[in-house]
Amino acid sequence: MNKKLTLATLWLDGCSGCHMSLVDVDERLIDVAGIYDIVFSPLVDVKEFPENVDVTLLEGAISTDEDVEMVKRVRKSTKTLIAFGDCAVTANVPSMRNQFKVEDVFKRGYLETTPGNDIIPSVNIPKLLEKAYPVHNFVHVDVFLHGCPPSADNIFYTLVEIAEGRTPELSKRARFG
């Protein structure tokens, strides 16, 4: 048997629904585990993003300075970068704040809707960007796997196609939303 490919999954500004959908691959997870070694993921306990990753599933929009740094590092160490789900592909729900100024979003989130609280946290947390952006605004994306969340079938199909050296054809299979 060939050497297994390495797979990383990343969770930025998203709801983790895409990761849930990955788990929904169900018994086919065994097949996935036969093709891929998961080297970095919210599902495994690795702190540093490794070098030379074959495939990265990137969930979530890019919303903070930390996200930007992360996505750049991931791009450098990844052969095939997959924008995983609508947040990564379109910025989706996180982008709904983009019509408003960051201060207004904070005010709404921390003050107006939280009676008694008069603090907007600012220490030791990543700085929010002016807007939430799709991943391809910052780095080149190899595969767009859209859907909110992408279906387990499409996730499985994509991982298998890449492992087989083919380009997954998702435009007709997947749907936004």
Binding site: N98, P134, F144, C148, L170, S171, R175, G177
Partner: peptide, 26 residues
């Protein structure tokens, strides 16, 4: 601001299905 995932017509929208029809992935 077309956010399909939180739209009442999600699944019934012609703009959404048009994306599939013309093979728009992003």
């Amino acid at each position: 601001n077309h956010v399909c995932s939180v739209c009442a017509t999600n699944g019934y929208c012609e703009l959404q299905s048009m994306a599939q029809e013309v093979e728009m992935t992003h």
